[in-house]
């Protein structure tokens, strides 16, 4: 492994592991969470992802990347369990299989954790300003779950854009976090439709929301922005306009790549 010699740290080898599907939770009409037991799982940091590989009977394979939704806490008995939250894409190749065809007991190959920049650890501190569009909330949820498990003192804001009320992922769990009184602030905005009496924000995440709904640049929040390309581009650029240090604005683009 001469490649690893000059690395500043040696991450665990990224090898394919055969995971067992334990449970499937329905999050929204198009989004499911898969709980998997991954023998030998080395643990992860919130924000990291895995590669999933499917193999057809004739050997044809397809690989995709999915963010880890679970907190990294590894106490027994769930030590090797991880959760992936996956949106079914209409023209997708892998996501329709993972959201509609698999059932508990199936085995799925995955490897990871992967990615070390779009991550949050306790020592990174806060405040946390998390900005999500759609399934972009998944790696941010791993951060919020980790923070809650640690009872970490850094206050956290989540500004989260969904198409409609029914498409908000983790809605009840987020409500629970916000009501705990541990300085978790959850702000939803709905872009396409809202139920009667909706008290939250409307429309796409824009500069005005970022200026007024999350801590200002002077508070030096750690910003994590994750979602579809255009949303991330708009939000990250607005944050820089508002005076946030570009080095404290981390981004990850999500979603369909078309074709």
């Amino acid at each position: 492994m001469t490649d690893a010699k000059s690395q500043s740290f040696a991450p665990p080898p990224v090898v394919w592991r055969k995971a067992e599907l334990l449970a499937i939770l329905s999050e929204t009409p198009r989004v499911k969470t898969l709980w998997l037991r991954v023998p030998g799982w080395p643990g992860h940091r919130p924000g990291q992802h895995v590669d999933v590989r499917l193999t057809a009977e004739d050997g044809y394979q397809a690989e995709r990347s999915y963010s880890l939704a679970s907190a990294p806490e590894r106490e027994l008995p769930g030590r090797e369990n991880v959760a992936l939250t996956i949106e079914r894409l209409g023209d997708g190749e892998v996501s329709p299989y993972l959201t509609e065809q698999v059932r508990p007991g199936d085995r799925i190959e995955l490897r990871g954790p992967i990615g070390g920049y779009f991550t949050w650890a306790a020592e990174d501190g806060g405040p946390l300003a998390l900005v999500a569009g759609g399934t972009g909330v998944v790696p941010l949820m791993s951060m919020l779950r980790h923070r809650a498990r640690l009872a970490h003192p850094a206050p956290a804001w989540l500004l989260y854009s969904s198409r409609s009320f029914a498409e908000i992922i983790y809605r009840e769990e987020l409500e629970g976090l916000a009501e705990k009184g541990d300085r978790t602030h959850v702000l939803h905005t709905l872009t396409r439709s809202a139920p009667p009496g909706w008290m939250g924000l409307r429309g796409r995440i824009d500069r005005e929301m970022l200026a007024t709904r999350i801590p200002p640049a002077a508070a030096r929040p750690l910003c994590f922005v994750c979602g579809p390309t255009q949303m991330v581009e708009t939000a990250a650029s607005a944050l820089v306009d508002l005076g946030h240090d570009p080095a404290r604005v981390k981004t990850e683009r999500f979603g369909p790549t078309g074709a």
């Binding site: 394919w16 055969k18 590989r53 499917l54 193999t55 057809a56 009977e57 044809y60 394979q61 397809a62 190749e93 299989y97 065809q101 199936d106 085995r107 799925i108 190959e109």
Partner: peptide
């Protein structure tokens, strides 16, 4: 891989 994904065609 020696692991076949049941019912997956791609």
């Amino acid at each position: 891989s020696d692991l076949i994904s049941r019912g997956f065609r791609g």
